[in-house]
Design a protein around this nucleic acid. Sequence first.
DNA 1: AATATAGTGTGTATTTTTTACACTAAGTAA
DNA 2: TTACTTAGTGTAAAAAATACACACTATATT
Lengths: 231, 231
Amino acid sequence: METLLPKFDSVFSIDCVIFGFDEGELKILLIERNEEPFKNWWALPGYMVEQDESIDHAAERILYELTGLRGIYMDQFYTFGDVNRHPQGRVITVAYYAMLRLSGNKELKPVSNYASKAVWIPVKDLPKLAFDHEKIFAQGFEKIRNKISYQPIAFELLPEKFTLTQLQNLYEVILNKKLDKRNFRKKMLNYGILKELDEKQKGVSYRAAKLYKFDRRKYSKLFQKELTFGR
Amino acid sequence: METLLPKFDSVFSIDCVIFGFDEGELKILLIERNEEPFKNWWALPGYMVEQDESIDHAAERILYELTGLRGIYMDQFYTFGDVNRHPQGRVITVAYYAMLRLSGNKELKPVSNYASKAVWIPVKDLPKLAFDHEKIFAQGFEKIRNKISYQPIAFELLPEKFTLTQLQNLYEVILNKKLDKRNFRKKMLNYGILKELDEKQKGVSYRAAKLYKFDRRKYSKLFQKELTFGR
DNA sequence: AATATAGTGTGTATTTTTTACACTAAGTAA
DNA sequence: TTACTTAGTGTAAAAAATACACACTATATT
């Protein structure tokens, strides 16, 4: 039966909204396109999905080819399917996002030549982007802002060891809102998902703060669905 | 420049996970397929998107053609892109969901003949479904369960006038959890998004309950993002 | 008319969570 | 030693969440 039916092929793409946090600034990973259309424009890392790969796999591959970043786990957040979003025809795109720690300064080096370079750009200096990528970016930002307010995912953006002040700064940047220091600390420490280390910050010209680590095991226990409504 | 570039066409589909609530049961809208592959199987209402329509528009059109339901607003929730999810080739599908009031018994009548019929099936009696539709359904159910616990969207499933007990039953069905009557009422009434009516339930063989209406205006004011973290 | 039945409707005390708020301690640099 | 800068800390008040049980009322049944 199957052989009598027409065969389908498709063209669709993946775009990645990758956030990083560095020097107190929230950044986003962009590439400079080296291909028409929009050659030499800034764009989100994104490309066509192959016929024989799942979209999740494509996301990883594409991010690697365009930026050199490897094995980054991303979550899908929305699919953009306006008719004219791509000048060459009907191309819908599935958007993924991730949050990365920038410490260690992983090098960015496109592996394919679809991109001429890949760089971290502060979110507040976002340039004009190719296609509908500004819209995609905006929705991705919205997504993490939402998510961070009910799941402490911010750790993914910080170095492995961090101070509470750094953590708070990050929350403030994403939520675009000042937070109270004492309440913030109380709340975070109460979650019980931070390990206090015996180490202190180094190289600062003032009192050094304690360093903390994120305790992934306790975290996943804590956030296996906890809903409102008592019994 | 554009004319030198290859033209792209694509094949992709929409699937709809539509919830209804009737006689104390949560139901889902299914069709019986009248086309290969999976002819005569149960399936979610879904079909291919046309080249010249946005995916949001396609969702509405497809739901109408397969079930006769018109102008239903749906939200996208996930895109399924495994390589072998469709036997005829590479077809990714964008899944949408909606919650509907079943009162008034809108008639279900496929307008195209891709479906031989469309019916409401209790979620607890879900049959075997075509393609990967069971997976899609499960993720859609997860979605509303999640959503209902931070936004009172349950009204969309109830008739325009409803009793607090009906509302509570619905929450209990979706959350799969018994709730305390007094606390539930206190909480709901405190939101201030219910209008108490001068009417009472009719045709019951016990004390009739007051009827309420959902106050959409107050609701949208209340739920314009309210995040945790004080100041 | 009396009674059984089934769901409606209500209040309070306790605990937990959230919020507001300001000063001292520690380390570095001059 | 002093000036500077950030780290670190507690409490009281308000708000929200929770646990819990019984009398009321409309109808159907006899």
